[in-house]
Simulated assay, not measured.
Amino acid sequence: MAEDGLIAGILDGLSLRSAAFIVTIYGDVVLPRGGVLWTGTLIEICERVGINESLVRTAVSRLVAARRLKGERAGRRSYYRLDASAQKEFAEAATLLYAPDIPAHGWQILHAPALSEDDAHRLRMGHLGGQVYIRPDRGQPAPRGAVLFHATDPETLPALAGYWDLSALQTRYLDMLSRFAGLRNAGRLHGLSDADALVARLLLVHVYRNVLLRDPRLPATVLPPDWKGAEARDLFRALYRDLTPKAERHIAARFEGTDGLLTETTPESTTRLAGIA
């Protein structure tokens, strides 16, 4: 079927780790609908992208050990909900994905002796040297123990991009644009089943999130003229909006929590869609 080929094209060559995809499912679908999902539903949706039951159960065990999911039982069924320790992480990712973009106002320059290299990378900071870092100023709080300075745009603005590996991010954005090019055709979107619309939306979120969480979101004045980040964001928002009616119809028909089928929409899912629009 045409839609089968469309999903297969998105999946072609995509390195899809079980635990990471389950995180995508919880972040995009489950979090706005109470945060808990039946294991059977999780297995069913993962099978559609080639992740079998054994891999799902192994990944869930690892996520429980990492305190990102927490198991519970109702009768003979097992359910997993977001662990309280993962709520902040999921909420921060959701803000980046679904909320309107916050423009930067100048720069933060931080002297952060206690900041590890891994934490600096996670916070998408540029390394100026020694214990000094830089990032666009969007009102983020300083890491513990850091001294924060605010700076306006310097005269050497274009040179600031050199403190981040933009080439790796550009490659990821180009891959995303190529991978989802087939979904740009409205006629092909119309032919998708409800289930495949949800799979396509989950894959869209998964691929985009994996690059967005690494992107420092530098001001346009710093970025190279052929930068694809804005184009990828526009594609994400347009496709997410167009896929959502069918995707959420499938959620309401097949996704089960402890109280039965999940609802098609919630105030949080509606807010997300409004933020994208």
Rank of each mutant, 00 (worst) to 15 (best):
D137R: 01
R77I: 12
I251P: 06
I10S: 11
D259V: 09
T265K: 06
G71I: 10
T39V: 15
A238Y: 02
L218R: 05
W107L: 02
V132G: 04
Y208V: 08
D28N: 09
G182N: 10
A114R: 10
L160N: 05
R138C: 03
G260E: 06
Q170D: 07
R179G: 03
L6Y: 12
Y26G: 06
I251S: 02
N52W: 05
A161L: 01
L97E: 02
L203K: 02
E248K: 08
L166N: 10
P224C: 00
L37V: 14
L239H: 01
G75R: 04
K70W: 04
G129C: 04
R73L: 10
M125T: 01
A168N: 12
L31D: 13
V222Y: 03
I22S: 02
G5A: 12
Y133Q: 00
A2P: 15
G229N: 05
Y26Q: 03
Y79M: 09
N185G: 05
L261N: 08
A186D: 13
L218V: 11
T41D: 03
Y26R: 01
L148R: 13
I276P: 04
G106F: 02
D12P: 00
G257R: 02
P267L: 10
L223M: 15
L11W: 04
W227P: 15
Y133C: 03
I276T: 07
R144D: 11
R124T: 09
L169N: 08
D242I: 00
L223K: 12
D101I: 09
L82A: 01
E155I: 06
A232T: 12
L202T: 00
G139R: 05
I102L: 15
V205W: 00
E92R: 10
K228C: 04
R209K: 09
F149R: 09
R188A: 13
A120Y: 03
P143V: 07
R67K: 14
L177D: 12
R62I: 06
V23K: 13
T244W: 03
V60K: 01
A20E: 14
A195L: 13
G50N: 11
V29H: 09
T271M: 14
H250Q: 13
L273R: 14
V199T: 01
L261D: 02
L37E: 08
A20N: 14
E44W: 03
R62Q: 14
T95M: 15
P245K: 12
I7K: 07
L63P: 11
V30G: 05
E92D: 15
C46F: 08
L148Y: 06
D215M: 05
T271W: 13
G257Y: 07
K246L: 06
R122L: 08
